[in-house]
Amino acid sequence: MDEEYDVIVLGTGLTECILSGIMSVNGKKVLHMDRNPYYGGESSSITPLEELYKRFQLLEGPPESMGRGRDWNVDLIPKFLMANGQLVKMLLYTEVTRYLDFKVVEGSFVYKGGKIYKVPSTETEALASNLMGMFEKRRFRKFLVFVANFDENDPKTFEGVDPQTTSMRDVYRKFDLGQDVIDFTGHALALYRTDDYLDQPCLETVNRIKLYSESLARYGKSPYLYPLYGLGELPQGFARLSAIYGGTYMLNKPVDDIIMENGKVVGVKSEGEVARCKQLICDPSYIPDRVRKAGQVIRIICILSHPIKNTNDANSCQIIIPQNQVNRKSDIYVCMISYAHNVAAQGKYIAIASTTVETTDPEKEVEPALELLEPIDQKFVAISDLYEPIDDGCESQVFCSCSYDATTHFETTCNDIKDIYKRMAGTAFDFENMKRKQNDVFGEAEQ
């Protein structure tokens, strides 16, 4: 370990593993360490099931009705991949897709007046949907046509809207959309967690709705994908990429100290040895004095023996409960997957309800979601602090990732990755940087 590296990475969460992969592909010498004996950090999948019970201090362990412990891979952080989103792009560019198998999530649902409705995925579904009345549908269709044709580089498509100054509230007004449709559009399509976006320039919202539609167009059922064997497969896929390009991995490796000289990182000390480096990437748990708390998320993992009611017996789905429907500031989400994804025993389902904490009784906040899941065989409640770095790391060369937020997709995580890359490399992130180099010394032969 007593060696000189360009970059040392602490923690094998998804953000850290993707950055480690990119740095290795770009010719950097990388050492990647984790104090845990497993990959994934906060974003790991726990197996066998006995391990999950232990982690949540349920000492009696799983009953026999849960089947074989080894058949379970339970995500600690519930997220899906947008089919046309940035993480899929990263997987394709790096060819990490060859280590993973994905399934399309069967449906996306939205909560309205105590019931759940399928988010329409085709024009026919939209016309048949009970989510809105006849005239509302016509106006909504006009709005969707506007979004589909919108091109930020072609003012002819703006229809009198200025993407940089017109607020989204004004765009909704222009198409005369009612409150329910606005809730549905902002939260189930643009996937905002709160209503803060309404008074911001509309460009980002329009682009988010386009991303949803384009992702949906790829597979038809929903815009989301999920990897077989759980999300823990993602960091491992990128760790393989890093290793192929010469990255060194050490799990179960305690970090005793991060060594600084004149305010700059110069190395990491572990078990009496020092590895030197020019730059350091880590998750917040490794540098508690360089991060601040930015809120909390509650996630309740529920094991069920039945599909969720009114989802047409889907073996995977997402449910969004827009905040307006339950008098909150932030949406509540449910991600459900099952034995069909090799993450649970035969006939079992895993539904994870999550939201940003707003009160001193977080469990009560998630109740509307839990009511949709009854009866629940077993619950595991996790309340996590969200951390963000206190500075950009440019001076110390210590670059810290943000905690995983309450969103049900990876777009915010990818933004964090691109942002850290830019601060480390001094140049904007470009997907081309992730391409495997042809015929290089570490390149794998085609399968």
Rank of each mutant, 00 (worst) to 15 (best):
D6P: 00
D6I: 04
V9E: 00
G13N: 14
L14T: 01
I18V: 09
G21H: 13
G21Y: 12
S24P: 02
S24F: 02
V25G: 12
H32L: 01
H32K: 03
N36H: 13
G41D: 06
S45A: 03
I46T: 10
T47K: 00
R55W: 08
L59H: 06
V74A: 07
I77F: 03
L81A: 15
L81R: 03
M82S: 15
N84K: 06
V88F: 13
K89M: 02
E95Q: 09
V96A: 10
L100K: 15
S108D: 02
V110G: 04
V110A: 09
Y111V: 05
K112N: 06
K112E: 10
K112R: 11
G114H: 13
K115R: 12
K115G: 03
Y117H: 12
K118M: 03
K118W: 02
E125W: 13
L127V: 11
A128N: 08
S129L: 11
K137H: 08
K142G: 08
L144R: 07
V145R: 12
F146C: 11
F146R: 06
V147L: 09
E152K: 10
P155K: 14
D162A: 14
P163F: 11
P163L: 11
T166S: 03
S167H: 14
D170A: 12
Y172R: 03
Y172L: 01
G178N: 01
G178S: 11
I182V: 10
F184L: 09
G186R: 02
H187C: 15
L198P: 03
C202V: 15
L203Y: 15
L203A: 01
T205G: 13
V206I: 08
R208C: 08
R208P: 03
R208G: 05
L211A: 05
S213R: 10
A217T: 09
R218Q: 09
P227Q: 01
G230I: 15
R240A: 03
A243G: 06
G246D: 15
Y249C: 08
M250A: 14
V255S: 14
V255M: 04
M260F: 15
V265M: 05
V265I: 04
V265F: 04
V266M: 10
E273W: 15
E273D: 07
A275F: 11
K278H: 15
I281V: 11
D283A: 11
S285K: 15
R290S: 02
R292W: 08
G295D: 07
Q296P: 04
C302W: 02
K309G: 07
S316N: 10
I332T: 04
Y333C: 11
A340G: 12
N342G: 08
V343L: 02
A345G: 14
Q346K: 00
G347C: 08
Y349E: 14
Y349R: 10
A351G: 01
T355N: 00
V357M: 12
T359A: 06
E363L: 15
K364V: 13
E365W: 06
P368H: 07
A369V: 11
L370R: 06
L370W: 09
L372W: 04
A382V: 09
D385E: 00
G393W: 03
Q397K: 00
S401Q: 09
S403A: 12
Y404H: 09
H409N: 08
C414R: 04
N415S: 10
I417S: 09
F431E: 09
F431K: 13
N433E: 13
Q438L: 03
N439S: 10
A445C: 15
